[in-house]
Structures are given as structure tokens and as C-alpha cells.
Amino acid sequence: MPRFAANLSLLFTELPLPARFAAAAAAGFDAVEIQFPYDYPAPLLRDAAAAAAVDIILINLPAGDLMAGGYGLASHPARTAQFMAALAEGEHYAQVLGVQMVNVLAGRFDPQQDAALTRQTLAANLALAGEWLAVHGIRVTCEAINNLDMPGFVVSTPAELAAVLAEVAHPNVGMQLDLYHLARMRLDLAATLTQYLSQTGHIQFADCPGRHEPGTGELPLAQIFALLDELGYTGWCAAEYKPATSTADSLSWLASWY
């Protein structure tokens, strides 16, 4: 089985974020990721992770108004200054927290902006982030998010993301694949992973439908993880799901797969 990490933005939310590191360690996780850590001082989170002996492997760059229904920062032609500020803040947190990867959320299309220019802006910003963070040994990823849960997202499939990354053409920028988002787009998980794994730096998962823990939906996750082993994937697979009840009650899969 791959190495599993806990997404602390969706798991252990019964606790404040600094206390979730110890809870994740007690549950058996050696590593965690955080979507947006910016409400807490970076040193506080670093110390909490160190005390729990877990690694923080990934954070997202700040995404502006994206999670509130807006267009975000990374692909909007009129928001390059805000993206630069987000990159600087994300760089600071990534260095303090010692993360391996920083994920850039592409954002939504603004109907007032040209679609081709929107994609070009995303490619330029990803190249900038890749170059900037390479200095610190931090890899940049970008993910395709399904356009059912997030209508208007700029990259909704790995094929669309691959086209953007071909324009980026930077060795420090790659894909993040989320099995839930792939399933929501009705893609063949095995075929998609086989095709794009060489470009993939990080994988996330939740069952589908529902985006809950493994075993609550229809995805053959055990088979997919076995395939990742066969394909030689050595990265992390992060549990980014919404527990159907409590986090503790949702973790039976972890013991069965380790």
C-alpha cells in the first residue's frame, strides 16, 4: 500500500488545527497536509507538528476568494499582483513548515476575461511559482477539480491540466491528482493514473459519491492503491475526505490497509 497522510483541513476537525497533529499521529499517520494554514502563525503549526512527530508534506497557496465562490488568483489576468503576494506568503509558510510541496489552485473562469488568456495566465503563474520555490527544494503541483462541485473551474480533467503544464514546461511543476475529482468526472481511474502518473507529484482520495471515507461509496480504492504500487508510485496518498460521522469512526480503512 502507498504511504497515507491525513488532510487536517477535513479530518480531526473536532479539534482546533494545532491539536490535530497529535490526533493524526495517535491514529497512525506519519504525515499530514493542510489546505490553508494561514489563520495560524507558521511557527505555532511547525512546533505542533514537531511535538507530534509528523511531517507536513503539502499546503495550498492562498487562493483569494476562490473558496467563497470567487475566481481565485492563479489564472485571473487582472490579479497577478495578488497572486505574487500569495506566492510570497505561501513561500514563507512552506519554508517554516518544511513542506515538500505547494499546491496551486487554478481558480474559476471569469466570463469577463478571455478564456485563452486565463489559461496563459495560469501557465505563467505556475512557471513563476515553480522557479521561485525550486530554490528551496519545494515542488509545485496543480490539480484538476471537477466542474460539478466547482462549476467553471479552469482545469477540470487531467487532460486539460496536462495541456497547461505543457505550456508551463518547468521541471519543478507537476500534477496533483484527486481520485474523488476524477471519479466525479466519470474518468477511468486506472487508465488515468497509468497515463499521468509520471507527471504526478501527489495523490489525494475520498470515496465517491459523497466524498466520505473509503467504503462509503463505489470506488475500488484498495485496487487503485494496489495499482499504484504496481506502477511504482513512491509519493504520498492523502486522505482528503469528509467523515460521514466523526473522524475516529471513519478510520477503520487505515488499520486494514497498513
Score class of each variant (00 low, 15 high):
4 F>R: 02
5 A>V: 01
6 A>Q: 06
7 N>F: 12
7 N>Q: 15
11 L>Y: 14
14 E>W: 12
22 A>F: 11
25 A>W: 05
28 G>N: 11
29 F>A: 08
36 F>A: 11
39 D>E: 14
39 D>R: 13
41 P>I: 09
42 A>Q: 14
48 A>W: 14
56 I>H: 12
57 I>V: 15
62 P>Q: 07
74 A>M: 07
76 H>R: 13
85 A>L: 03
87 L>Q: 09
97 L>M: 03
105 L>K: 03
105 L>S: 09
110 D>Y: 05
113 Q>D: 02
113 Q>F: 00
115 A>V: 03
116 A>W: 10
116 A>C: 01
118 T>E: 08
118 T>A: 10
126 L>Q: 10
132 W>H: 10
136 H>K: 14
144 A>R: 05
144 A>D: 06
145 I>W: 03
152 G>E: 11
153 F>Y: 15
154 V>G: 12
163 A>N: 07
168 V>Y: 07
174 G>M: 05
177 L>Y: 01
187 L>Y: 08
195 Q>E: 15
196 Y>D: 02
198 S>D: 14
200 T>Y: 12
206 A>W: 01
210 G>K: 10
213 E>V: 05
213 E>M: 08
222 A>N: 07
223 Q>C: 06
226 A>I: 00
229 D>R: 13
233 Y>S: 08
236 W>Q: 01
241 Y>K: 02
243 P>Y: 05
248 A>E: 12
255 A>F: 03
255 A>E: 14
257 W>Y: 10
